[in-house]
Structure formats: structure tokens, C-alpha cells
């Protein structure tokens, strides 16, 4: 999935102080009645926001090992971490542990985000700083791909990657049926976003430093490596994390490409724990699995939201 949009507004949103928690000014007191009415509304909204989360946590902690919850116990009697233990050992009926699933997800997430950012930064630099013929057309090409949902390219990619096979006697390696192939397909989705997001950030960096380096006789490559790259580190981290998030939860390509259970990722296991194939799945285990799956990325996201939300909440039109 490409969560994508041109940025540059990112910066502006941050400058506007989106997540500023400090009230602008407190000099005027709010009348008590109004304060209470607003607090009541906000509290109600808080309940709706927290309801699914509390429910998931309470199911995960339910010690009774029920197949389905038998009531809405938001605080389950005698909470225990048994469900977590069970899903870490073997979340689904397939012989694969949580750690193995997480490692597979990690491979896809790291491989795709690192490569997409590495390829993206040089292209972003060229688009942001250099003048050349065909610039507008190439940018339109990137934007056009960025707009396309990954479903729209996944089918030909399946057939394309399926052509790469190596056979040694009984052993067959099929690029399509491997995490390498999955990673390549995920990169196809992430690269346009990486280019666009990094370009948006580079556009907001003043060029004074580069100009100074140029007058001191630095070559193009030196300027890029010694001036631009260090300045772009925050954007590289943000783009890399958003890419990591996409790879960590990638479902489409893994489900379509991969056939061996040993190549399963967390999202595939999660899907097999809900719906028609999951009559036997204990909901406590589903809940525990969902928490373990979400926690690493959600915590990082929550802590660094100040930098990350801008990357997601960017308006489609650059100001």
C-alpha cells in the first residue's frame, strides 16, 4: 500500500504547530458550564476511541481460554498473560512460531524500506536541486505511479517475477515464491513515495550551504554526500520508518506470491486468525497476537508522532 502524497507541506504543518500541546494562551477563563459540556463531549469521544483498544487488551488478558468472549468484561477476572505465551509459541495451526513470522516481516520491512530510501534519496536530490531535460515528465511518471494503488501493479509483477527460476535437481528457487520477490514488489510500491516525500523535504531546505560549498570548489558528489545527506537525515528517518511500517504489515503481495508456510509473515497469520478459516481460533490469542504485531511499530509511531504524522497528513497540494 502506498500511503503517499507530496510533501513540503509536512514542514509547514509542523511549523503551524499541529501537535503543540501547550495552549496558545490561557489568559481568558472558560466559563465552568462550558468547560463541563466540552469535557463531557470529549470524554464521550475518548470512550469511543479507547473502546476497541480496551476490548482487545481485556480479551488478550482473559485467563479463561474461551473460544469467544461470553460477555463484555472490560476488566477480565484474574488477568493472565497465558494467551501471549501461546501465540508466541505457535499462533496458528501451521508449524511456525511468532518469532519466525516476525523475522519474515522484519526482512521484508527492512529490505524494502532501506532500498527504497537509498534509491529514493539520489533521485529526490536530482529532482529537487538539478536542472535537466525531461525533469517535468519524469516527475509526472513518479507521481502517476504514486497514485496507483499497489493492487494495480501486483498482477503483472506476479507473472514477471514468476519467470525467474533456478533449478538444481529437486530444489527449485522461484523468485516470485520467495521473500526476496515479495520485497521487490514492496519496493515497487514504496519507491515513488520515498522519492516524492524526500524531494518535498529537500525543497524546504535552504540552499545557502550548498551554494557556499560550491563556491569553495566542492564537486556535485561532495555537495550531495557532505552537505545534503546530513541535512536530510530527519526526512530519511521518517520516510524509512513509514516504509518499514508498510513492509511490516504488507499483506497483498505475501498472500499472492508466497506458498510456503515458512515464508509467512505476521499479517498472513493475523488474517488466518479471523474470518471463515478461524472458527477454531481462540479470540484471546487473536487479541494477544494483534497486540504483539502492532506494539513495536505503534509505540515508535506514538513516540515520534510529531515527526511522522506530518508525513501522513500531508495535503495533496503543495503550497
Amino acid at each position: 500500500m502506498s500511503v503517499a502524497a507530496p510533501t513540503g507541506v509536512t514542514r509547514r504543518l509542523l511549523e503551524l504547530g499541529i501537535l503543540r500541546t501547550k495552549p496558545a494562551d490561557m489568559e481568558r477563563k472558560l466559563p465552568l458550564r462550558r468547560q463541563l459540556v466540552i469535557q463531557a463531549i470529549l470524554l464521550l469521544i475518548t470512550v469511543t476511541v479507547l473502546f476497541p483498544l480496551v476490548w482487545i487488551f481485556s480479551m488478550a488478558l482473559d485467563p479463561r481460554n474461551l473460544a469467544r468472549p461470553d460477555g463484555l468484561d472490560l476488566i477480565p477476572p484474574g488477568a493472565s498473560l497465558d494467551a501471549f505465551g501461546r501465540v508466541i509459541a505457535q499462533p496458528t495451526s501451521n508449524p511456525i512460531s511468532f518469532i519466525e513470522l516476525a523475522l519474515n516481516s522484519l526482512k521484508v520491512a527492512i529490505g524494502s524500506s532501506v532500498i527504497a530510501v537509498a534509491l529514493g534519496i539520489t533521485a529526490a536530490y536530482a529532482f529537487s536541486r538539478l536542472k535537466f531535460r525531461g525533469r517535468a515528465w519524469l516527475m509526472i511518471a513518479v507521481l502517476g505511479v504514486l497514485m496507483l494503488p499497489s493492487v494495480a501493479t501486483i498482477i503483472p509483477l506476479f507473472i514477471f517475477l514468476n519467470q525467474f527460476r533456478i533449478e538444481f535437481g529437486d530444489l527449485t528457487f522461484n523468485l516470485r515464491n520467495s521473500l526476496v520477490g515479495v520485497t521487490l514488489a514492496v519496493i515497487a510500491g514504496q519507491l515513488p513515495f520515498a522519492i516524492w516525500n524526500l524531494k518535498g523535504y529537500l525543497d524546504t531546505i535552504p540552499r545557502d550551504l550548498e551554494e557556499a560549498a560550491a563556491t569553495d570548489g566542492a564537486t556535485q558528489n561532495q555537495i550531495f554526500r557532505k552537505v545534503v545527506l546530513p541535512l536530510a537525515i530527519p526526512a530519511i528517518a521518517v520516510t524509512g520508518f513509514l516504509g518499514f511500517l508498510g513492509g511490516w504489515t504488507e499483506y497483498l503481495t505475501v498472500a499472492l506470491f508466497v506458498s510456503e508456510v515458512s515464508d509467512w509473515t505476521l499479517s498472513l497469520a493475523l488474517n488466518s486468525m479471523v474470518g471463515q478459516f478461524a472458527r477454531t481460533t481462540n479470540w484471546s490469542e487473536f487479541a494477544a497476537f494483534a497486540i504483539l504485531f502492532a506494539a513495536p511499530v505503534s509505540i515508535v509511531f506514538f513516540v515520534f508522532q510529531r515527526y511522522l504524522v506530518g508525513g501522513l497528513a500531508v495535503g495533496g497540494v503543495k503550497g
Partner: peptide, 23 residues
């Protein structure tokens, strides 16, 4: 202006954003 617990509400209301959509 003058609203109490603003920071708390902002922190809670961002939670749906940080959870992966598949979950």
C-alpha cells in the same frame, strides 16, 4: 481557550492513527 486536559485528549485521539490498518 482555557480547556483542561488538552494534552491528554490529543494523546488519546492520535491512537487510531498509530495502529496498523490491517489490525
Amino acid at each position: 481557550k482555557g480547556l483542561r486536559f488538552r494534552g491528554f485528549y490529543r494523546a488519546v485521539f492520535i491512537l487510531p492513527v498509530v495502529i496498523p490498518p490491517i489490525i
